[in-house]
Amino acid sequence: MAQDRTYTKFLNELGDTTRFTLRFFRELFKRNQELEEFFRQCYWIGYKSLPLVGITALIMGLVLTIQSRPTLVEFGAQSLLPAMVSVSLVREISPVITALICAGKIGSGIGAELGSMRVTEQIDAMDVSGTNPFKYLVVTRVLATTIMLPVLSNLSNAIGLYGAYLGVNIRGTVSWHLYWTQVFNALSFGDVIPSLIKTFFFGFAIGIIGCYKGYHSSKGTEGVGRSANSAVVVASLLVFIIDLIAVQVTDLLGLT
């Protein structure tokens, strides 16, 4: 019986999220979009997340290189270190870690902001003033996360590769020129493009889940906390699911 209720609740939630997503697309193609708010959100979501994403990417590149070196040394293949690290970073690690950081920082931020607006009746106030709160709050944020996440992921790739260069040179000596030659020889568009495409989906998932959880927040301050928390949990889970699907699709298309 309790299990039935859980399934029903899950299916209801899934249906509501789908309707919310469809409404996003309906509102997206209407006239008079809130461009000023959209650019403000791009600034907050993109520019303001850059320091966190940048530091994490640098450390990620550095640590991945340091951790990989002993195994490659064992097989006498340390010269492959730049190539191996660059492919790992660009194809998988950098987009996923950037998305997870953004799910934590941006997803929870949107969930909490919209949640507190809901419980303090600010969204209702927009409604009764004749302003469409969905267009103003949801469309702008989802669009901003969808566009900014690929930008952040690309910057994360670049910073991670600089981190890897530092990592390579901690124990060995590889010249700047040789390092980048090896990196670019190892990478192809088949690595970069699929990775770039999936980050759009990551950004969309983070934005839509954050907005959905916040927009449907209830039960006062407790509900706001719960919205922020579940926005992070669900968005993080979705990032992995999307990644899994993206890997399968890339594999089917022969881009591996």
Binding site: M117, E121, D124, A125, S129
Partner: peptide, 18 residues
């Protein structure tokens, strides 16, 4: 929306955009 513009609503919590 047009009708709502002719009907003001003062919320109990004030609902100012903080």
């Amino acid at each position: 929306d047009v009708l709502r513009a002719r009907v003001g609503f003062l919320f109990q919590s004030n609902a100012l955009y903080d």
